[in-house]
Amino acid sequence: MFIRRSLLVLACVMLSACGGVDPHSPLGQRKAIFKHMLNTSEELGGMLRGRLAFDGPRFSEGAVKLDALAHEPWKHFPEVKESDQTSATDEVWKNQARFQALARQLEAATGELVVASRVQPYDISRLSPAVQQVEDTCSGCHKVFRNH
């Protein structure tokens, strides 16, 4: 009976290791960062579009968080594609110069969002274009470098 249970537990552990992405791998780390970026961006956009109540200080904190996150995922793209589980297209590795240029554009756009979010009183008409620029930059990169 003990051996049977031990084998069952071992099988469950082995199966749970299959199919997942190692959270410590470059792929796992960048996926986690991109997920945080998406959640933060959605919150900011939700405040501007009326899906969430606008909270100026919270918006400003979110802009700073998004800017910090925007500088992080690029270091988790190794020189050679490490997995077929990635949503990144092969273009990431074939056209590194363009990929890095778009990464810098995102960093600049989130930096501009931080600047806009510090101006008081908070003005949605001033913040909306900055958020739109971030969203457009993300979308532009996804069109070339992400499998949808």
Rank of each mutant, 00 (worst) to 15 (best):
A53P: 14
L10V: 15
L27S: 10
A63R: 03
L10I: 12
C12K: 14
D22R: 04
V114M: 00
D67I: 07
P78N: 04
S117T: 05
T86Q: 01
E72V: 08
G20F: 05
L113G: 02
M37A: 14
S83D: 03
G28E: 10
T110G: 08
P78G: 09
T86N: 05
L38G: 15
E112A: 14
V92D: 00
A53L: 03
G19I: 06
V64P: 04
P57W: 01
S6E: 14
K75C: 11
K94L: 15
R49N: 12
S83G: 08
G28M: 07
K65I: 02
E82G: 04
K81Y: 04
V92M: 03
A68R: 04
E72M: 15
H24D: 09
L48P: 15
D22A: 08
S41T: 13
A32Y: 10
G28F: 03
S60Y: 10
H36A: 15
V9S: 11
R58T: 05
R51E: 11
G50V: 05
V64Q: 14
R30W: 05
M47F: 06
E91I: 05
F59T: 00
L7V: 01
K31C: 10
A116T: 05
G111Y: 08
T89L: 01
V115W: 12
L8R: 03
V21P: 01
